[in-house]
Design a protein around this nucleic acid. Structure first.
Lengths: 263, 263
DNA sequence: AGATGTGAATAGTTTCACAGCA
DNA sequence: TGCTGTGAAACTATTCACATCT
């Protein structure tokens, strides 16, 4: 996770030297599964809730599988796919087993089948509408990003609080004023809000999104957002990513740590 | 974690509908601590290795603390700081306890002291040099981002493989050709490489960085990077973040899951 | 009183290792 | 024989609960 900037060039990205939240409220999604005591009847052995970590990796598998499909590969073993995705093969198998059994012992998985299952699981067949608030430096970059439309999403609206920016056309869309946010959300049935404003405006925009019923937010502003239960916020914070790398970089230098490894 | 694009507008960000890796190789940094059998002598009870999760949160605390410091706040309780950072207070206390005891029972923590401790721990006193490869849509945005310099880092070089881009001046720097990467790394003592190229070029750039001794990489390209042990790669992938949100969005809709919660 | 620091309990995740099917 | 699917073990991380100190 990492992040960028807001509507006004500079001051945008994780401005302060501080860090950001990797995934703020995402905790909600935890593999719920109550396991209430006093019950144990016929419990649907279905695909209940997936572990958060698995969900994140499914997206990775999907990307790798898409590449394989393009190359004409029709079958992969867990070993191959895991290697390409950078994970342990047992981990991969367990992840996939949560979707049900779609592999063939002694052979492997059919690429096309897996792609379908994962897309279905992630809900990528619906093509959710995304609103991007803040078309500054980063906002522009995000708006121009082609990957959005590729599968599952499309940017339906661009908004900015700066009157000078309103009316500008970016990637086929006209920037509208932030005041129109509620109307835009309802008109276009926005499911996901992407915040790319300066830090000081982020909480405000977030509150508006939530007030309008948006429960999925991707935050690029260097600020910790407070949201009610039921709302998922994921944060992308460049400063934090760099700081984490800095920490490890430092550890590599001073031979204070390795000492433990030796004896 | 999320990501963006490359040097060429479009096709940049997590292009394919697939996802990306949250933190590829970062696994290295795991709280190492071997616990070799057959030993147990006098072991320095020092601030050995911090848990990965703690490192990530320290960056968050730092940001919150910076804001508090600006506001003139000099003392905070774990409860207050935890609320501002969006974490559990016990979790916060445990995180901080890893740095040593810098709080006062019955009172709380001194903001200035904590800031110092955290900056020291994350190695933010050294101001590492960062090279940004790929100045496309996203690269531009990142280069223009003010937060870099704020503390701990500075973009020392911009590179791109497109001759048309070489020579362009962005944020006070002149874009140099990718071929100069080795020279640039040595000249400027680059510690961190930020990859913002199209997916197809990412592994190549990564390999060059590694060959030149860079062991910390932040990858914005929608590709899984393979690196040798000892190299930390963190990935920022927009498509994956959106897909994770999509998954939860889907779960909210169909009342299949909640059933479990009820009984 | 009030808040830190931390052992113990709990929860979540990864990895192993192998039974079982193709 | 080969690879999936999965119980069990190992690890990591979070939360509780309270002794401890100011």
């Amino acid at each position: 996770m990492t992040d960028q900037h807001p509507s006004t060039p500079d001051e945008a990205l994780p401005g302060e030297p501080s860090g950001g939240v990797r995934r703020a409220r995402a905790a909600l999604g935890r593999a719920v599964r109550s396991t209430l005591p006093g019950r144990g009847e016929a419990r649907r052995a279905e695909e209940r809730t997936l572990p958060e970590a698995t969900v994140a990796r499914l997206a990775v598998y999907l990307r790798v599988l898409s590449v394989l499909a393009e190359q004409g590969v029709t079958t992969v073993s867990s070993e191959e796919l895991a290697a390409a995705a950078g994970v342990n093969s047992a981990n991969l198998r367990k992840d996939l087993s949560h979707l049900g059994s779609y592999g063939t012992r002694g052979v492997g998985y059919e690429v096309a089948v897996l792609v379908d299952r994962i897309e279905g699981t992630l809900g990528l067949t619906r093509r959710l509408a995304v609103a991007l608030i803040g078309v500054g430096n980063l906002g522009h970059a995000l708006a121009g990003y082609g990957g959005f439309a590729t599968r599952g999403f499309h940017i339906a609206a661009l908004l900015d609080a700066d009157p000078a920016r309103v009316g500008e056309r970016i990637a086929g869309l006209t920037v509208r004023h932030s005041d129109e946010l509620p109307a835009v959300i309802r008109e276009l049935d926005i499911a996901i809000g992407v915040i790319a404003t300066p830090a000081h405006a982020a909480q405000d925009v977030c509150d508006q999104l939530v007030a309008c019923g948006v429960t999925s937010i991707l935050n690029f502003a260097p600020a910790v957002l407070a949201v009610p239960d039921g709302v998922d916020v994921r944060k992308v914070d460049l400063a934090i990513e760099l700081q984490i790398l800095s920490f490890h970089e430092q550890r590599k230098l001073r031979p204070g740590g390795p000492l433990e490894d030796v004896g």
